[in-house]
Amino acid sequence: MSSDTEEARSCRTCGTVKEAEEFHRHQGGRRVHCKECMRAQHRERYRTQNGKDRVFDQSLRRLYGITLDQYNVMLAEQKHRCGLCGEVPETERRMHVDHEHATGRVRALLCHHCNLLIGNAKESIGRLRLAIVYLERHGNHHPAARLAARLQSDPGESEA
């Protein structure tokens, strides 16, 4: 059935008569609610059923094998601070779940910047050490760089 032969119809939600293309296809025909009303229904259901947390929980389970409750426990244990730099994230967005890509083992929750740092370094300790040397050579006097240099000079301290 082509859209040329389909007649305009009335939406059961808003009562507006609209062209057939304004209704999603479904089981060989068209839905009885227009696309606009269906979007509104989905938004309302997402809002009222705490959709963000539900979707985030499903993602955590699928990607990392942890629940939203376990994520929240980790967050509380880290005092809502990044597991790498120890700072409170600059935004209200959730922290990233850092994990070993080879094994899938969850390590900690990281702020956006530290997550990018680890990811862009391809989890390579050698690459990160080279970055520290590079920053020291070019006069970066940031406190985190000084801490990293101190840890590099005393490897036993970094194992603790």
Rank of each mutant, 00 (worst) to 15 (best):
A108M: 13
A108N: 12
L110A: 08
L110Y: 14
L110V: 11
C111P: 12
H112S: 07
H112M: 06
H112L: 07
H112I: 00
H113M: 10
C114V: 04
C114H: 12
N115F: 13
N115H: 15
N115D: 08
L117S: 11
L117D: 02
I118T: 11
I118R: 09
G119N: 09
G119Y: 13
G119T: 08
N120L: 06
N120G: 04
N120E: 10
A121W: 10
A121N: 09
A121C: 11
A121Q: 09
E123R: 03
E123M: 03
S124C: 08
I125T: 05
I125K: 06
I125M: 04
G126F: 01
R127H: 08
R127N: 02
L128A: 01
R129T: 05
R129W: 07
L130A: 05
L130R: 09
L130K: 06
A131R: 03
I132H: 10
I132W: 11
I132R: 10
I132A: 03
V133I: 05
V133F: 12
V133E: 04
Y134F: 10
Y134R: 04
L135V: 05
L135Q: 11
L135Y: 13
R137M: 03
R137C: 03
R137F: 04
R137V: 02
H138E: 01
H138D: 01
H138L: 07
H138M: 02
G139V: 05
G139T: 07
G139M: 11
G139Y: 14
G139D: 09
N140V: 07
N140C: 14
H141T: 02
H141M: 01
H141F: 06
H141A: 01
H142D: 06
H142N: 06
H142C: 03
P143V: 05
P143W: 14
A144E: 09
A145W: 15
A145I: 15
A145F: 14
A145H: 13
R146C: 06
R146V: 05
R146H: 15
L147I: 13
